[in-house]
Amino acid sequence: MIKVYGIKNCDTVKKALKWLSDNHVEHQLHDYRVDGLPADFLIQAERQFGWQNLVNKRSTTWRNLDEKVKKTLEKNTALQVLTDQPTLIKRPIILQEEIALIGFDETDYQSAFK
């Protein structure tokens, strides 16, 4: 079963979940708000995608983030900020069984789930 990390009311997560359902890919949503974040998840995601790609700069959370935090964000502080503000994490994320996807792109999903 594929675990999809995200937030259930996020439009992009909804698109990914719908695509997975429509294509008969067994999956489960891990909602950051409800289920929290596993301690090693962000570390693994950062290794795979880089901390810059984990930060969703189009989110309301980013727009509301203190300017000082935005200007001084770097690898050493990013994971802590993302842990404190999980809605700042780009979503959805799938990291398992040789599959590493961030965001939703139908072409990427088609390639990953042939």
Rank of each mutant, 00 (worst) to 15 (best):
I2R: 13
K3D: 05
V4P: 00
G6I: 05
N9F: 10
C10H: 04
V13N: 01
A16N: 02
L17N: 05
L17K: 10
L20K: 02
L20I: 06
L20W: 02
S21M: 05
N23G: 08
N23P: 06
H24E: 15
V25S: 02
V25F: 02
V25P: 01
E26V: 13
E26I: 12
E26L: 13
H27D: 04
Q28S: 14
L29I: 08
L29S: 09
H30T: 06
H30I: 13
Y32W: 12
Y32I: 05
Y32K: 05
R33G: 13
R33C: 11
R33H: 09
D35R: 07
G36C: 11
L37W: 04
L37A: 05
P38M: 10
P38H: 13
A39D: 15
A39N: 13
A39Q: 14
A39M: 08
F41R: 06
F41I: 07
F41Y: 11
L42T: 03
Q44I: 08
Q44N: 14
R47L: 11
R47K: 15
R47E: 14
Q48W: 00
F49T: 00
G50M: 00
G50W: 00
Q52V: 09
Q52R: 11
N53Q: 15
N53H: 12
N53G: 06
N56W: 06
K57V: 13
R58M: 09
T60P: 00
T60K: 12
T61H: 07
T61R: 08
R63H: 13
N64M: 12
L65N: 10
D66V: 05
D66H: 06
E67F: 07
V69F: 06
K70W: 08
K71R: 13
L73M: 14
L73D: 05
L73E: 06
L73K: 07
N76M: 04
T77Q: 03
T77E: 03
L79N: 04
Q80W: 02
Q80S: 14
V81Q: 05
L82F: 05
T83C: 08
D84R: 11
D84G: 02
D84Y: 01
Q85R: 13
L88Y: 08
I89H: 03
I89Q: 03
R91H: 03
P92K: 04
P92A: 08
P92L: 07
I94A: 01
Q96A: 13
Q96F: 02
E98V: 06
I99Q: 11
A100P: 06
A100H: 09
L101P: 01
F104H: 03
S111M: 13
K114G: 12
K114W: 01
